[in-house]
């Protein structure tokens, strides 16, 4: 296990380097630059409000006239020392900006993954065990959830639960320390939107795995020994079916980070997704780089945890 973790961490360092370099190059190759953003900001107009001379002077001030690899090297040498730099657009310290935004997104994604897994696994088990008409109803409901447009669903929830019933806030985020109740209320609608959209994937995977597990010889043996059906389903079959589901948990957790961009926009949550999109649109390289590094680390840690969970669920995986 120690070797596994050590090997993963070594690969992660290389991965971080490659991804940060690729991001830097791709972002730099995109038309436009941050000097245009700065000079054009606030005008709210379609057209140019600054001269070419102003533009070139600012590019020079920002070091954008230096070769690309020199710019990357400058960023990398600071980043290695823990300094992700300052946004030339907003003036924000990148580490501070990410630190304030990441917890919002992690709250959303962690709760979203948990709720999606609970609902999806529940639906999948019911569908596999009951089958027949109930199974088909569960299948249809879960597929309907994934087919409905997220944006429409989010606005529908907002209109119903916030505007009409007044039960929940339509937008915004409250930190747990300010108000635990406010925190929970602010996340109900965003998380529910994620669950409705994502539960179908879990349900289908769980159903398929459960159907396989329930036909296993060991299950027949348990039945022959008089074990209760509930015990067979929840203690034995579900555990055997859990490995592909755990993989899915990891994938969904990572995937929700991209889905979070949309949710954060609709529900006006100040998360890292909004920060990333805004930074990319503004050609704000330090922020984009910082977000990419942070999210790459999240992916690395998640994958490591998934692998460790495999070992816990299936001792065979632990043996070299």
């Amino acid at each position: 296990m120690f070797r596994l973790i050590t090997r993963r961490l070594a690969i992660s360092a290389v991965l971080l380097f490659v991804i940060s370099l690729l991001t830097f190059i791709l972002q730099s190759l995109a038309p436009g630059d941050v000097a245009e953003t700065i000079l054009g900001s606030g005008s709210g107009s379609v057209g140019r409000s600054y001269s070419e001379e102003q533009y070139q002077q600012l590019r020079q001030e920002l070091g954008l006239d230096q070769p690309l690899l020199v710019q990357y090297w400058n960023w990398l040498t600071s980043a290695v020392l823990g300094d992700l730099g300052t946004s030339p657009v907003s003036g924000l310290d990148v580490t501070a900006a990410i630190s304030s935004r990441l917890p919002v997104t992690l709250s959303l994604v962690a709760l979203g993954t948990l709720a999606t897994a609970i609902v999806g696994v529940g639906l999948g088990v019911v569908s596999a065990v009951r089958g027949g008409r109930l199974g088909r109803v569960v299948d249809v409901l879960s597929l309907l959830g994934s087919a409905l447009p997220n944006f429409w669903l989010a606005l529908l929830f907002m209109a119903l639960f916030a505007v009409t019933l007044g039960l929940l806030p339509a937008t915004g985020f409250v930190s747990f320390t300010d108000s635990p109740q406010g925190w929970a209320e602010s996340l109900v609608l965003p998380v529910t939107t994620l669950v409705v959209a994502g539960a179908a994937t879990f349900a289908k995977q769980t159903r398929d795995s459960m159907l396989t597990a329930l036909t296993h010889d060991s299950v027949r043996m348990l039945r022959a020994n008089g074990a209760s059906e509930a015990s067979i389903v929840w203690r034995h079959a579900l555990r055997n079916a859990a490995i592909p589901v755990v993989t899915l948990v990891g994938l969904v957790f990572i995937g929700l980070f991209s889905g979070a961009v949309f949710i954060e926009n609709v529900f006006a949550l100040p998360g890292i997704g909004r920060l990333a999109v805004q930074a990319a649109n503004q050609h704000d390289l330090p922020v984009v780089q910082g977000v990419v590094v942070a999210l790459t680390l999240v992916v690395i840690v998640t994958n490591l945890l998934v692998d460790l969970t495999y070992g816990w669920l299936n001792p065979k995986v632990r043996t070299p």
Partner: peptide, 18 residues
């Protein structure tokens, strides 16, 4: 854990509470 993460975000109250 999710609550703890949220707490790390400091005072992000956007007036969300109805």
């Amino acid at each position: 854990g999710a609550a703890a993460l949220s707490a790390c975000s400091g005072s992000n109250d956007t007036g969300a509470s109805a």
